[in-house]
């Protein structure tokens, strides 16, 4: 048990020493609000397009309300896909 603590302590010390050696990343950390904003616009934009396509399909094919329902769901999934891509891009940086 005591050994375990010692190991953990050592790891902590190594990590802190490492962080001292590596220069702090120049990338400014984004504020939480800015990040949330980025994510929400991605979802909203995809939903807007999905609903728009749904309404157009309904209008011209007369499939009210199924086009709206189906494309709303597609839009929601596309929104999550957008968010996933944004996240992956941030991870890469």
């Amino acid at each position: 048990m005591a050994n375990n603590y010692k190991l953990r302590d050592l790891k902590k010390r190594i990590d802190s020493a490492k962080s001292l050696n590596t220069p702090p990343s120049k990338k400014k950390k984004e504020s939480g609000a800015g990040f949330g904003f980025k994510i929400s616009t991605e979802i909203i934009a995809a939903l807007v397009v999905g609903v728009g396509i749904g309404l157009i399909v309904d209008k011209y094919l007369g499939t009210k309300p199924f086009g709206l329902i189906i494309f709303f769901i597609f839009g929601a999934i596309a929104g999550f896909l957008n968010v996933y891509r944004v996240m992956r891009r941030i991870e890469k940086q």
Partner: peptide
């Protein structure tokens, strides 16, 4: 394919809404 197309079409909207809303 519809999901990808919607994702592609949502680009100009998210691009413009982000700048405008900020």
């Amino acid at each position: 394919i519809p999901i990808e197309v919607i994702s592609y079409l949502s680009r100009p909207i998210s691009l413009s809404v982000r700048l405008f809303a900020n």
